[in-house]
């Protein structure tokens, strides 16, 4: 992928920055400037919370170029709590099985490197929500 495209997408990729429709208040991700629901212009920036749950999932064994070093890896469709469905890798699962409805949260991780000499590409993944330790 060309460097310019990584650069253009950096805010939505690093931090789940989308849009909200000023007419019908639909939360939009990825940003597309036109509300997919009411068709009005929607350019207002909206910061998603990063929380959601697993809507569906699979495991990728035959990874596309740039991702082979990470395979096998879990891939999911996540329903964000604000509404949109997002396709993303899951991470930090350890031996935990993935379940539909599992609460997850967004983390910014390294997605791939553009070869040995190219740029490093960062973006959102989702992990099981971090359990808080009780102070002893």
């Amino acid at each position: 992928m060309e460097t310019s495209r990584h650069w253009r997408l950096r805010q939505q990729r690093y931090a789940l920055v989308g849009e909200v429709c000023p007419s019908c208040e639909l939360k939009i991700f990825p940003p597309r400037d036109i509300c997919p629901d009411c068709g009005n212009e929607a350019r207002t920036i909206f910061q998603f919370s990063g929380r959601g749950e697993v809507y569906s999932h699979t495991t990728v064994y035959q990874a596309p170029a740039g991702h082979t070093e990470n395979s096998p890896y879990p891939l999911a469709i996540v329903r964000l709590e604000e509404g949109p469905l997002v396709t993303a890798q899951l991470t930090d699962l350890a031996d935990k099985p993935v379940e539909i409805g599992m609460p997850v949260e967004m983390v910014t991780r390294k997605l791939r490197s553009d070869g040995e000499r190219g740029i490093l590409v960062y973006g959102y993944k989702f992990r099981p929500r971090l359990a808080r330790a009780e102070q002893s």
């Binding site: 690093y14 991470t91 983390v107 390294k110």
Partner: peptide, 13 residues
């Protein structure tokens, strides 16, 4: 660190 972690991702969190 995991395969998808480095000083950039860890610093972000």
């Amino acid at each position: 660190a995991g395969l998808d972690e480095d000083v950039i991702t860890m610093s972000i969190e």
